[in-house]
């Protein structure tokens, strides 16, 4: 079955406990859209994630931070089952998307990825025209009616239309790194997923391109649920509503409102990490 078929009643029943309302100005519903329950991930015999449980609120930005190798990317990939593509990877536990466990046997990972899009660390446009890059997801998902309109709309929402609107036929590879990344964001949002996962989307970019991407992410949160991995503490503080701090060993040490985590973390290790004493 496709995830689109998940009954909404089911989803509503999963979100009866509203998460704490954040003080940020995002208009997000704040209801849980993704709930991770005791997720363990192994690569062969080595464990990369250890019992991750958290509730990711809808239409808000959730940042995953932590030192290198602590499993942020691994966790992100388990939300859209990209780990399935790694032969040695094994995921245990449940991740509920609107109440439906995405690791159930009847979930098709391809259908899941249509609801949960992804943007990667390195900009990876296809060696095709800008237009075809954005249209690709729409085409494989069979949403290719009014294609021109949808492509333009996605490019506008990704804040890159003004720069490329008049050169849709030129190659996506001819753009600058920052433009390529926004093109990839346009490609990810064009088919209208519910959730967008981003793995350090700005780490390969210069400060100007980075701040463009950051502004864009804040805008995206009005329509989408955004989960973003970042190494940049200021970035997490600026753009996210919730922050999850992972620490070495693949454990989630603290999760909560971004403001609280940065101003008054519960855990000494988190405080040390945030203030730069290690990591």
């Amino acid at each position: 079955m496709s995830l689109d078929d998940t009954p909404t009643t089911d989803a509503e029943s999963m979100t009866t406990t509203p998460t704490v309302t954040t003080t940020d100005d995002h208009s997000g519903t704040g209801e849980t859209i993704i709930e991770s329950r005791d997720i363990d991930v192994y690569y062969g015999d080595t464990q990369a994630l250890d019992g991750i449980s958290m509730e990711i609120p809808e239409q808000q930005v959730t940042a995953l931070i932590g030192p290198s190798g602590c499993g942020k990317s691994t966790f992100l990939r388990s939300i859209n089952r990209m780990n399935d593509l790694i032969d040695t990877a094994r995921v245990e536990g449940e991740i509920l998307l609107r109440g439906k466990n995405i690791y159930d046997d009847d979930v098709d990972p391809v259908a899941l990825r249509r609801a949960v899009g992804m943007v990667f660390q390195e900009p990876n446009p296809f060696p095709k025209s800008i237009y075809d890059n954005v249209a690709y997801g729409l085409r494989v998902q069979g949403k290719d009616d009014n294609l021109d309109e949808k492509v333009e709309d996605a490019l506008r929402r990704a804040a890159i239309w003004d720069e490329v609107g008049d050169q849709l036929d030129s190659s996506g590879l001819d753009l600058s790194g920052g433009q390529q990344q926004r093109l990839c964001i346009a490609r990810a949002i064009a088919p209208d997923p519910e959730v967008i996962l981003m793995d350090e989307p700005a780490s390969a970019l210069d400060p100007v391109a980075t701040s463009q991407i950051e502004d864009l992410i804040e805008d995206l949160a009005s329509e989408f649920t955004v989960v973003i991995v970042t190494h940049n503490m200021q970035q997490a503080a600026r753009i996210s509503d919730k922050t999850a701090v992972f620490l070495t060993g693949g454990e989630l040490v603290e999760f909560g409102d971004t403001n609280r985590i940065f101003e008054n973390p519960n855990s000494q290790r988190v405080e040390d990490y945030i203030t730069g004493k290690f990591g």
Partner: peptide
Amino acid sequence: RAAYGVGA
């Protein structure tokens, strides 16, 4: 990955 990511 880019193609898988949009549901191919």
